[in-house]
Write a protein that binds this DNA or RNA. Structure first.
Ligand code: SF4
Ligand code: SF4
Lengths: 156, 156
DNA sequence: ATTATTAAAGATAATTTAGTCTTAAATATT
DNA sequence: AATATTTAAGACTAAATTATCTTTAATAAT
């Protein structure tokens, strides 16, 4: 598995919040996100705390509170979410798990892996939250097992 | 992490056995592999059993026993080792963990991920054990934290 | 002030992955 | 036949990840 569950949930939640942001509703309660995406509320809370700790989101307690991005979703790349939750190891590590990739003597897989690894990094680096959220809305794609963007926005 | 530890150990062990195969020493005791690569003998045993169960290796008990590939390492692709241990989910799954990738409505990440995922699959599909083992020998690359091919072959 | 709503924090539990240890079965050597 | 070597199989333990539950703190509305 490329990304941890926590990271996947964090990305999906980020895409939901980004979609709401475009609807001029920047502050969203975590409960709403967890309900809509069918995620554990408490688990998601912890994950989103990592995003606020990383400065990607801000939070506000109390009625009408919630979470929101600190910057415009068009300026936030997916890799920032990945970095805040899983870290950047995926883009630095040896595919064979050997320590000191890039410093020490390479392993036989190095050249091929370095190329592939970079493609993965570029994918996350070149994709903004806004881009995916917009595309999701335009094409009514899904953010959950059976729930598409239309479903999500309908009852927002 | 792209591959599980079990899968990583399985690949590293396979590369060692492939290198020995080229030295006209097809049957290698598991203990030798675990010692050379600094892996847990029992853990590695279980992993290699998956490779024999998958028909990739054969084993022989008793003195001078060990494991060996059933086919020439030049005809065995890395993806076969990955498949036997981690399965092929990595090459089929949604990057966002949604079920039914390819059948159900896609997620917003789909197009980019499908491309990257294919690059990963090609990497494992287009690389043979022999290729990496030979390259490792030729360039004295490492198969363990501090142990290069030369070290491994020297005391074989 | 009181109450309701919300995120933060922390304790606990369940699951999966990783790793260890023991015993059994097969084979070769003597 | 007895012994040593080696893989197979299974029980067990440890660690990491995933998930749940409870309590606390902040904020708003009444
Ligand atoms: S071979 Fe390359 S990818 Fe693998 S550990 Fe060495 S430097 Fe890293
Ligand atoms: S968006 Fe694409 S990659 Fe993601 S689940 Fe759907 S089909 Fe799979």
């Amino acid at each position: 598995m490329l990304l941890s569950k926590a990271c996947i949930y964090g990305i999906r939640a980020s895409l939901y919040v980004a979609a709401m942001h475009e609807q001029k509703r920047p502050f969203v309660p975590i409960r709403e996100v967890s309900d809509k995406l069918e995620l554990s509320f408490h688990f998601l809370t912890k994950i989103l705390q990592q995003l606020t700790a990383a400065g990607l989101m801000k939070s506000y307690k109390g009625p009408n509170g919630g979470i929101a991005f600190t910057r415009e979703p068009k300026d936030i790349k997916l890799i920032e979410v990945v970095s805040a939750i899983d870290g950047l190891d995926l883009f630095k590590e040896c595919v064979l798990g050997l320590p000191g990739c890039g410093h020490k003597q390479p392993c036989p897989f190095h050249d091929k892996w370095a190329t592939t690894r970079e493609a993965i990094e570029i994918m996350f680096n070149a994709t903004s939250l806004e881009e995916l959220a917009t595309k999701g809305k335009r094409m009514n794609l899904r953010l959950s097992a059976e729930i598409t963007m239309d479903d999500l926005l309908k009852t927002a």
